Simulated assay, not measured.
Amino acid sequence: MAVPQPVPQLVLGPPTQTAVFLTLTVAPGREDDVRDGLRELSGLSRSVAFRARDDALACVAGLSSDAWDRLAGGPRPRELHPFTPLQGPRHLAPATPGDLLLHLRARRADLCFELARLVLDGFGDAVTVVDEVHGFTYFDERDLLGFVDGSENPTGSAAADVVLIGDEDPDFRGGSYVVVQKYLHDLTAWNALPTEEQERVIGRHKADNLELPDDVKPPDSHVALTTVEDEDGEEQRIVRQNMPFGRLGTAEFGTYFIGYSRTPAVTERMLRNMFLGDPPGTTDRILDFSTAVTGGLFFVPSAGLLDDLPAPGETRETAPEPVPAEAVHPGSSLGIGSLKGAPAS
């Protein structure tokens, strides 16, 4: 008989038009306050979501490797470690400070704003916001470079298989890993390229999003380098929920990359291909126009574990809580199905 999984956080939800991404650091000595705040997070989310039931408000919380040691008791998630910075021949993927990640999304910006405000009020001066990004849907699911975002995301139960930890780490079934990076685009340089050259950078046609044929697609294109396979030739996937963002007054235009997976190794391999090259030196040409300015890796506990996060030295109950059927089928209230995506996959 299969072991049921605990209920996951709403990592896999329906498409939304807006998102807020908050990266927080925890003040020394305030771990108890932050742990209490995390335990209240699901209740706050329900209270705000109740005011607009049809607008798909959700908040996903993740803890960094260091934050897990400071805030949580019991065993560690098997693959949790700090984000690994990458210094390639021309481009850098930096690791930046961050103890907690909050990913809020909804069909309305006011819901994200209200929930973020209440959560931060609850934390008070126990946390500091070190990065804040307000994302939005751009026309027909495109990034600010003009290409469709996330067309290779798995859907339905396949998405749950890609994202949710299973028997490989039984103490953390229903959890996930998430890698985030904020990319800033040089739109002046990008828009100076003819469309055909932009397509060679990405590896897709701009108008219809079709992938370029293998004999035309350059080996340093984004699609070529972020398509990874295991030793049996099976493609390894993640679920991206990226969003564009921008500030007109400072000419800041970018994409917030956020990739969920049941193991961070797949995302990390994609990043090594992009920044170091595969083969070495064949780096992703998109990095000539998009600069990574942040980087973090976080563990997303199951909803039950987050609601009852034990302090260091405490033990926790490990009896699994079954996943409701609607959590793993498309068209359900959790909306695992047609998912928001990420930059040109």
Rank of each mutant, 00 (worst) to 15 (best):
H222S: 14
R108Y: 10
P219F: 04
L248S: 08
R39A: 13
A327V: 14
P213I: 05
T282P: 00
E321A: 06
V48Y: 07
T283Y: 00
L120C: 07
L111E: 06
M243S: 15
A325E: 12
V11D: 05
G254A: 04
M270T: 07
D161A: 14
D186I: 11
P330K: 01
R173N: 04
A2Y: 04
E234T: 13
V239T: 10
V239S: 06
I238T: 15
Q9K: 07
V216F: 11
V34Y: 11
N273S: 01
H222E: 12
I286D: 00
E252C: 05
A319W: 08
A311P: 04
F275L: 07
L187D: 01
D36F: 01
G13P: 00
L187V: 10
A251W: 09
E79T: 01
G73R: 08
A319I: 13
F299R: 04
A292R: 05
T155L: 10
E321T: 15
S345T: 14
N191T: 09
T263V: 14
R316C: 01
F147T: 07
G73P: 04
P320I: 07
V228R: 02
K206E: 10
Y177V: 07
P310S: 00
F113Q: 11
P94T: 08
T227G: 00
H103F: 10
A160F: 00
Y260S: 05
V223K: 15
R35F: 09
R51G: 08
T227Q: 03
R247V: 15
D125W: 05
L145G: 15
G337W: 06
A159W: 12
P154C: 01
D140I: 02
P77F: 13
Y260M: 03
R142N: 11
V179E: 10
S65W: 09
L276F: 01
R247K: 07
L41R: 02
D36K: 12
P244L: 06
V163L: 08
A49S: 15
D69M: 03
A327T: 06
E141L: 09
H185D: 02
S157P: 06
P343W: 02
G277M: 03
A189M: 00
A292Q: 09
Q17E: 05
V323T: 12
S302D: 12
L210R: 05
L12G: 08
T137H: 01
G135N: 07
C112A: 13
D208L: 11
G259L: 03
V20A: 09
V228Y: 11
D171N: 07
G249F: 14
A311I: 04
G37H: 02
V119D: 04
L10S: 08
L101Q: 09
G98N: 08
T263I: 10
T255M: 14
E132S: 13
P15R: 12
L306T: 05
T227H: 03
A19M: 05
G313K: 04
K340G: 12
Y256F: 15
I202C: 04
H134E: 13
P28D: 09
T25E: 14
G246T: 10
L309T: 07
T282R: 13
